[in-house]
């Protein structure tokens, strides 16, 4: 703690609201990036060196699952599938 930085209620409040504003801005931009991905062809890099492509459909609130269609797997195409976020390292698309 920095010496002499006595926190007054106003300072605390503005710190909290600064944090809330930052969190809201980051979250909104993230949610919008997900919406921009809907219907796009997305390349997924999964763990264990697995790569797949699919059309992105939707994701759930906690971003724990990606619903995709036309999933091209190393062993064929699956019309609809759920990818677990825990299996995914990254995803790439062109908006």
């Amino acid at each position: 703690e920095a010496p002499g930085s006595q926190e007054c209620p106003v300072g605390q409040q503005s710190q909290e609201s600064r944090e809330q504003r930052a969190r809201a801005a980051l979250r909104e931009r993230y949610l919008r990036s997900l919406l921009a991905m809907v219907g796009r062809q997305v390349r997924f890099t999964l763990h264990e060196g697995v790569h797949v492509t699919a059309h992105f459909g939707a994701t759930d609130l906690d971003v724990a699952n990606f619903y995709v269609s036309q999933l091209q797997t190393p062993i064929g195409i699956q019309a609809e599938a759920l990818l677990r976020c825990s299996d995914i390292i990254s995803y790439t698309f062109e908006p």
């Binding site: 980051l26 979250r27 993230y30 990036s33 060196g49 906690d62 971003v63 976020c85």
Partner: peptide, 16 residues
């Protein structure tokens, strides 16, 4: 798995 990415950071989801 030693993956490396470079780019301009647009956002980081504060939840995930």
């Amino acid at each position: 798995e030693k993956k490396e990415y470079r780019g301009w950071l647009l956002t980081t989801d504060p939840v995930s």
